Amino acid sequence: MWIITVYSKNQSPTMFEFESEVEAKKTFQEIKGCKILSEVIYYNDGVPALA
């Protein structure tokens, strides 16, 4: 999952979620202002526990 966090002077931070990296990066280029692109990785999804 990919998250774009946008910070604005007049509003609280806004977050947008994307399933694909391509879509997130395309949108990231179009958004104006202070922004952060993050990839969220869940280590416990579908991974068996280590002994």
Rank of each mutant, 00 (worst) to 15 (best):
C34R: 08
Y7F: 14
I41D: 08
Y42T: 13
S8T: 14
I3N: 00
L37K: 02
I4N: 05
M1P: 00
K35D: 10
E30H: 08
P48A: 11
E39L: 09
S8C: 12
T14R: 14
Y42L: 14
T5K: 01
V47C: 09
W2D: 04
V22T: 07
Q11I: 14
E17Q: 04
K35W: 05
Y43A: 14
P13W: 01
S38V: 07
T27Q: 07
F18E: 00
F28G: 01
K9T: 15
K35L: 12
K35F: 08
V47P: 02
S8I: 05
Q29P: 03
S12R: 01
I4M: 07
V40A: 13
E30A: 13
Y42M: 11
Q29F: 03
C34W: 03
V40W: 03
G33F: 03
T14G: 09
K35G: 08
T14A: 15
V6C: 03
I36D: 04
I3F: 00
G46M: 09
N44R: 07
N10T: 15
G46C: 10
W2H: 03
T14F: 13
S38W: 00
V40S: 11
I4Y: 01
K32Y: 06
W2Q: 03
K35H: 10
K35P: 08
Y43W: 09
M1E: 02
S8W: 04
I41T: 06
I41W: 03
Q11W: 08
G46D: 06
F28C: 07
E21T: 00
Q29I: 07
I4A: 10
K32P: 03
D45W: 02
V22C: 06
P13H: 04
G33M: 13
E19V: 11
F16L: 15
S12D: 05
T14K: 15
N44Y: 07
C34N: 13
F28E: 02
V40E: 12
E19R: 04
S38Q: 11
P13R: 04
S12M: 10
I31F: 13
T14L: 14
K26F: 12
Q29Y: 04
T5G: 06
N44F: 09
G46W: 02
T27W: 04
S8D: 15
M15P: 01
